[in-house]
Amino acid sequence: MVDVSIPPVVSALAGLATAGQRLGFKDGEAGVQIAELTGVAIASIAARKGLADDLSAKVQTLFGLPLPSEPKRVAAGDVSIIWSAPGQWLVVFESGGRQRVSDLTAALRGLASTTDQSDSRAIIEISGPRVRDVLAKGVMVDLHPSVFAPGNTAITLVAHVGAQLTCIDAAPVYQLMVPRSFCLSFWDWLISSAEEYGISIGAKGDPKKG
């Protein structure tokens, strides 16, 4: 095997906004906080035919987490697992970089097909008192807390861009995963939709950790 150096995961939104920045309506407290989650490694895993139960057991021993059988997100420590399709999930590592994906690939060999998706998606976290008003402008899924609570996820269209939307806290806090190649277009929509409420740009994760 040739030893190749593993490049860090770079920010998808670098240069668009900086932490601490205030955008849009300037009076009072910002209605929405927006932060890119950087330095995150993502793996997609797809169960091999007939081995979903074995895969689930293996993942349970690796991370202490079940593989959700419906559109849910589960998390423990710096690892979260998000349902993607029947028999398919995303495993998100908030530290350790791509090495975690390589380790997972090795650990799941024979049980699942694993692909590094760290460069495929940008992860944006949105919170604040007006967050649902912003999302209502582009999301077709019902986000009422009685049906879309913490732990629920949806793969859907947001402002015509394919996105995975997850509720991660009742505050509420939502996480949006969008293809990096659509990032600028999505960012334009997000900022245009949120600026009437006032936006504060935050920071999540450490871009150097990759």
């Binding site: 169960a47 007939g50 979903a52 139960d53 895969l55 059988s69 028999g87």
Partner: peptide
């Protein structure tokens, strides 16, 4: 309903 048989759907 799903077009393919349930045995192929993945983890229960």
């Amino acid at each position: 309903e799903a077009a393919r048989p349930s045995s192929l759907r993945g983890a229960a």
